[in-house]
């Protein structure tokens, strides 16, 4: 069971949250092509590694936020606001995340 950090409420059990799937997907306009629209509605990335997804503290404050999570080992690499840009999957971002999970582990 994951331990997620709600920006308002702090670290809580996964059971308090609901996952809203992949984040940072731009909503196309009405003029979008069928392919672009289908891509938005149906298609998601499924990487073996870092995913960026949005979670809601459903049984808590109701806040939506973003989580960068490594799906291989479930390490939480970053937790950030919905309005924040997608962090670069650079070494720094990941090491920051690792630092965070190390802190949680301590």
């Amino acid at each position: 069971m994951l331990l997620l950090t709600c920006p308002h409420c702090g670290p809580r059990d996964e059971t308090e949250f609901s996952c809203g799937g992949e984040s940072h997907i731009a909503r196309p306009s009405l003029e979008a092509t069928d392919d672009a629209w289908a891509d938005y509605v149906f298609f998601r990335t499924n990487p073996m590694g870092v995913t960026f997804e949005r979670w809601r503290h459903a049984y808590g404050c109701g806040c939506w936020f973003n989580v960068a999570r490594d799906v291989v080992n479930h390490r939480i690499l970053a937790t950030y606001a919905m309005t924040d840009p997608k962090p670069a999957t650079s070494e720094t971002a990941i090491s920051n995340g690792l630092q965070q999970s190390a802190e949680l582990a301590r």
């Binding site: 809203g20 984040s23 909503r27 949005r54 809601r56 109701g62 806040c63 939506w64 919905m82 309005t83």
Partner: peptide
């Protein structure tokens, strides 16, 4: 109600 919240918090901020 949850859906409204999602659109407001995640898309139409």
């Amino acid at each position: 109600a949850a859906m409204f919240d999602e659109w407001l918090q995640c898309e139409w901020t």
